[in-house]
């Protein structure tokens, strides 16, 4: 049964998928710090308000995974912002997140060299994201 994207239930499922992944722990062993995803509103695609997602990663473990408010999102070590359609492209692996960043389709606030050094971790969590059975806001229009 698909889960509505960007809801708390979906965040829980995503967290569980990361925890269940056999490779994640070793790949992400060096990663420290929280990541927020900011989804810009797109009313035409049933995203009327911005959505803020906070995820805490720490040395191969995962902590708090919550839908949050703007203030909490901005407290994360890394804040990535983009339009809903771009995030969906990333989840579907139609657009690589690094390429989206370089092309300006996603924006990031945070330590860019740290992300580059840990690019395998970034790719891994995106890979897992695509495996969560998801109902996207514009899927049921």
């Amino acid at each position: 049964m698909p889960i509505k994207a960007m809801t708390q239930e979906w965040m829980d499922a995503y967290k569980a998928a990361i925890q269940a992944d056999p490779e994640y722990k070793s790949i992400a062993k060096d990663w420290e710090g929280s990541v927020s995803l900011v989804v810009n509103p797109d009313p035409a695609k049933n995203v009327p308000e911005p959505i803020y997602l906070f995820m805490d990663y720490w040395h191969g473990d995962v902590g708090e995974f919550v839908v949050c408010d703007k203030e909490k999102a901005e407290s994360a070590k890394f804040v990535m912002t983009g339009d809903y359609a771009r995030w969906k492209q990333v989840a579907f692996k139609e657009l690589d997140a690094t390429k989206a960043l370089l092309q300006g389709k996603l924006k990031m606030r945070g330590d860019l060299p740290y992300v580059v050094r840990n690019i395998k971790t970034v790719n891994k969590v995106i890979d897992i994201l695509g495996k969560v059975d998801t109902l996207w806001p514009d899927d049921n229009k």
């Binding site: 690094t98 960043l101 370089l102 300006g104 924006k107 990031m108 860019l112 060299p113 580059v116 050094r117 690019i119």
Partner: peptide, 18 residues
Amino acid sequence: SALAEGLHMMGSDANMDL
């Protein structure tokens, strides 16, 4: 540009890990 930022911070050797 994130590309320009990356080049400023890491030089062209930003490509090594990626």
